[in-house]
């Protein structure tokens, strides 16, 4: 489903963030990407979303080289990916409800479906009392939960979660990880980037360890070892 083929990313002038990355994540797989800060986890997520272009190598999504497709096809692919970003990437000018409904509107879903689904997902992430608030009126944890709700609302085939528990307390972290596991059980592919040792070890899923831009370990049912 996702394939990295000799991918290297160098930021100008000479900062090598990723070097010769090769891995494949199959449909329905749960892959944890671990590594220290600056190991290249976020860049790897951005490369899958087409937000960065690799300096060399290719990235395939469902067999399509995402750097060789046109803008319209790239947007179609992005609509099928639920992204939870480290900096949340919420729409600051829209309310909690609108942040989630926007994703469904982009997809062209009917209004009745939106009115039905959005309150459900907001209830699941515990934001049912915050419908009309704007992101800047939410706490860090609430913003992160909103980002999770937004990533899940369209039932995407792939979920890219970049430090989704970074700002959450242990209870909320557990809730989010449970949601991701549930999505995985439903056949969705999950790429989770994290430096939360406890979360990764508890999951007992495939772990790819990055160090200084290189894959140093790739284990089925791996553990967080750096």
């Amino acid at each position: 489903m996702i394939k990295f083929n000799n991918v290297t990313k160098i930021f100008e002038p000479d900062l090598t963030v990723l070097q010769d990355i090769n891995f494949e994540a199959n449909k329905g797989e749960f892959v944890c990407i671990v590594g220290k800060s600056g190991a290249g986890k976020t860049t790897l997520i951005n490369l899958i979303l087409g937000l960065e272009k690799p300096t060399s190598g290719e990235i395939f999504l469902d067999g399509k080289n995402i750097n060789a497709i046109n803008n319209s096809d790239l947007q179609k692919i992005r609509r099928n990916i639920g992204g939870i970003h480290q900096d949340y990437k919420l729409l600051s000018n829209k309310t909690v409800f609108e942040n989630v409904s926007y994703i469904m509107e982009v997809e062209g879903k009917d209004q009745e479906e939106i009115t039905e689904q959005v309150p459900k997902i907001l209830d699941i992430v515990g934001l049912s009392e915050r419908f009309d608030r704007f992101p800047n009126e939410l706490s860090g944890g609430e913003q992160q939960r909103l980002a999770v709700a937004r990533a899940l609302i369209n039932n995407p085939e792939i979920i890219l979660a970049d430090e989704p528990t970074g700002n959450l307390d242990p209870y909320n972290s557990y809730e989010v990880i449970q949601l991701l596991e549930k999505m995985n059980q439903l056949g969705k592919t999950i790429i989770l980037s994290s430096h939360d040792r406890e979360v990764v070890n508890k999951l007992q899923k495939r772990v790819i360890t990055l160090d200084q831009g290189k894959i140093i370990r790739d284990e089925e049912q791996g553990r967080y070892i750096i």
């Binding site: 947007q75 179609k76 992204g83 990437k89 729409l91 982009v106």
Partner: peptide, 18 residues
């Protein structure tokens, strides 16, 4: 002042016209 917002809209898959 809304460029971050525009970039987020692109990331979630909105078309240019949307």
């Amino acid at each position: 002042s809304l460029k971050e917002e525009i970039s987020t809209m692109k990331i979630v898959g909105a078309t240019n016209w949307f």
